[in-house]
Simulated assay, not measured.
Amino acid sequence: MLWILLHDDLPVFGGGHVAREVYGLYFRWYGVLTHGAFPAHDPLWQYPPGAGLVLLAPGLLPGLTYFQAFVVLALAADAAVTVALARTGSRPGRSRHGAVYWICCLPLLLHLPFTRYDVQVTAFAVLSLLVLARSPRASGVFAALGSLIKVWPVLVLLGLERGRTTRRAWTWAALTGTVSFAVLALSFSHPLSFVLQQGGRGVQIESFGGTVLSLARHAGWHGGVRYQFGAMEFTGRYVGAVAGVSLVLTGVAFGVLLLWRLRARRWTAATPYDAALTAVLLFTVTSRVISPQYMIWLLGLAAVCLTSRHTALRPVTALIAAATAVSTVIYPVLYRDVIVCDWTGSTLILLRNGLLGVAAVLSFTRLWRSTRPAPPLPRSVPGTRPPVPAVPAARSGPVA
């Protein structure tokens, strides 16, 4: 992955566009953040205030350029995830498959994980789940810190077993989130500016809605593609309607997860892991945006599931790995085909999102079944005796 990063200028690796986000966009935001303000007037700033600390962190490493320091911190987060998965997998009743999965699948994204800060966010979510059995309080703290960087890590607390564990984790998550946000709000101006920018996003070409519009281009729809809000998005008639449907589907996803939570009756050690992956999958496939770095989140949560021998989502982890491989072909290898919506680009998007859609449905189905109560044992009728197994008849023959 580092070798590819050093050769990022090659056309097959994106012609320099993948790494440009760090020394172009992130470094520009770093300059604004050092003056005590969030980039309030930048339409590309769409992240919670905790993201500012991640972007400021490279400046704490002496003797390195901003780009070099950013990559070093991404490598450190990758190492933290690997060590946490390996140590958890070495315990009795656990499996090292999670660590192997992370080590083998992350490079499917080439050098992208080291030029975005999603590995750092994923590290908080992974740690939140892995420390849950020993310390629900620490689990809540890690989830809250991750949510202050990107909102989705709060979903890892969805599958906690009812009772004391849930109360402790959510209480500490709320306290940590409140205190941390207050500190950031006092330290930087415009801490909520990201909300307005996030609300203005349209339909990214790689989303499920984008898949529909990409295929519609071949059926005669005359929409266009334009770079806005930090992504290539569709423009034209019906785009607003597709974006609205995506928001409705996100609400439906929240509803079915809430229904599962209310109806679940049986928990195993893997249930919090499976629920976290299912929740993030559902919110990903219903989003207006599915950037390639989103696959890092799913890989991390899938790896956590595989540390438990009781997980019900093994087939889902295979689908996520396959979708990750296709995502790399989409971006950066053949991204031009995706932008112009030719048949190659449209087919790749349909394949990747089809894999994610199947994974989401399968994930929720298997989670639902794994938490339903076991069927009751058959009860004998009063006054009767249970049938006695027949004893095989002795075979006649000479006695030795």
Rank of each mutant, 00 (worst) to 15 (best):
W152F: 14
A243Q: 15
T278S: 07
H41N: 15
V32I: 14
E21P: 13
T235L: 07
P58I: 01
V225E: 03
L85W: 02
Q228W: 13
V154H: 00
Y47M: 03
P292G: 01
V203N: 03
Y47A: 00
A133G: 11
S327C: 10
P11Y: 12
A69P: 05
S139P: 07
H222F: 05
Q120G: 13
G255A: 12
V326I: 15
H35C: 08
S128Y: 02
F194K: 00
L196G: 07
R309N: 09
G89E: 03
Q228I: 14
G52C: 10
I296R: 03
A318Q: 04
V126Y: 01
P386D: 09
A322E: 00
H222E: 14
A51C: 09
V54I: 13
W3T: 06
H35M: 13
V391M: 04
A322Y: 00
A231R: 01
T211N: 13
G14I: 06
D342E: 14
Q46I: 14
L298V: 00
K150I: 06
Y335D: 08
L175A: 15
V100D: 13
L64G: 10
L350P: 06
L73R: 05
G300D: 03
D8I: 06
Q68E: 05
F229Q: 14
S135I: 07
Q68D: 11
G50N: 01
L277D: 04
L145N: 06
T88M: 13
R369I: 12
S246Y: 03
P389A: 09
L2R: 04
V285C: 07
A123N: 02
T268N: 07
L5P: 00
G224C: 10
A374H: 15
F114I: 07
L301R: 02
S189N: 03
R263E: 15
T65S: 12
L247C: 08
L249F: 07
L6I: 12
H35E: 10
D342W: 06
P48M: 01
L130N: 12
L108D: 05
G357F: 01
S193H: 12
F124G: 01
R116P: 01
P153Q: 03
T82I: 09
T82W: 10
P389K: 09
Y66W: 09
L282N: 05
F181W: 09
R116M: 00
L25Y: 08
Y23H: 04
G63H: 07
L145I: 02
G251V: 06
V119K: 04
A76F: 15
I4E: 04
F70T: 09
T178A: 11
A69K: 05
A323W: 00
A325R: 02
W260N: 02
F70W: 15
R385S: 13
G230W: 12
R309Q: 08
R336A: 15
P387V: 06
T344L: 15
R87F: 10
R385H: 13
V54C: 08
N353W: 07
F283A: 10
H310N: 09
G255S: 13
I4N: 02
A99G: 14
